[in-house]
Write a protein that binds this DNA or RNA. Sequence first.
DNA 1: GCGCTACGCTACTGTAGCGTAGCGCAACTG
DNA 2: CAGTTGCGCTACGCTACAGTAGCGTAGCGC
Lengths: 206, 206
Amino acid sequence: MSDTAALDPRVLVSRERVLTTTLDLLMETGLGELTIDDISRRSGVAKTTIYRHWANRSALVIDACSRMTDSEEAPPETGSLDGDLRTILTNIAGLLDTARWSSIVPSIVDAAEHDPEFADIHSRIQHGHAAPLRAALDRAALSGEIPSTTDRDAIAAALLGPLFYRRWFSRQQIDAEFVDLIVRSAVGGLHRDPPGPKRAGRSGRP
Amino acid sequence: MSDTAALDPRVLVSRERVLTTTLDLLMETGLGELTIDDISRRSGVAKTTIYRHWANRSALVIDACSRMTDSEEAPPETGSLDGDLRTILTNIAGLLDTARWSSIVPSIVDAAEHDPEFADIHSRIQHGHAAPLRAALDRAALSGEIPSTTDRDAIAAALLGPLFYRRWFSRQQIDAEFVDLIVRSAVGGLHRDPPGPKRAGRSGRP
DNA sequence: GCGCTACGCTACTGTAGCGTAGCGCAACTG
DNA sequence: CAGTTGCGCTACGCTACAGTAGCGTAGCGC
């Protein structure tokens, strides 16, 4: 948001070393155990130097977390909604298995529960993941493949939710068959019971 | 697991006060900010007394979190799978809105990522929520309402995942229509494309 | 009423982590 | 080749928190 004219390579190197180390430690130990002293030790950048670049611990953490969203990839276009969704979900499943952020996200979700600044970051990351999905659904709506009245937020939840659930809650493998089932379910739900007369009573609490 | 003969009411009162205060603070501030001093101040129980009952901070937190699973309710039996699922999900949606644990779970998920003891707790809570779902699905399998070859873990993920997603990720309202959509999708997925010949290639990374 | 047990209180030790100050050196800029 | 700027280092001050010790008291069971 501000990378103006700071050309001195020494600055760039220090910043980079500190930020990547921060994410590494965040992944290994979590937000609660993260300390500036550890970052300094591990990165080889002196603590004083860290404080020359960031006002306090919180600013550094927020800066580091914010950079996680920058690595967005171009959404695919396979020609059919099914194909698009399967590609996108398979991609996310891969990230959940390997990428750094999948270990860090829980810390952010937790922090977001109590701290509005982290709530912002969380929301940005969130939108980042949902974006390709939204794009694919929008395309399908335009082409008439799905009704334009479809609640696309709900569909996105029906697609991403199960993946996240497996990674952070039930901790089970996500394989191709699972992705397959999820896509079939979510998309299938659109073609039955279109938004006609409302279903019987059952209001409950929600 | 151990409530043997500790009859002295003073002990029970102290324990109770400390445990509920711990959960309250956990909800308000999160696991990272939780301190024994705060618990002592808020509960009115002296810090020394707390350490008479729990060996250290960690033991107390784990004890408190473990008690969250005790409040299980009897699963409903409406007669149809659809009805059962809708009831169960509506119930969980209500809890996500109001109950204490919905603010605490993120801390536990985060801790579980790095600490095996919390991973245990998390897994127990997890099973607690999935249990009524599993029961309903098992019943449906027995009665022939769904194929007995169904992957019930996957269906559970398809049902719970979207709810959790809305609470902790997209932070959107969970209303009756959403529950409706999720149930229709997940159950609908069963009636199409039964486990016959495997779908074409597409192995991806997972 | 009497012994026992749990409790509250004050005071304390030890440590970890945040953030700062000042010096001398090395690297970049022009 | 100067002047400047960023850096590493050592040494701090400060606060918050974990966990303990010992004393006097109040509630409990009998």
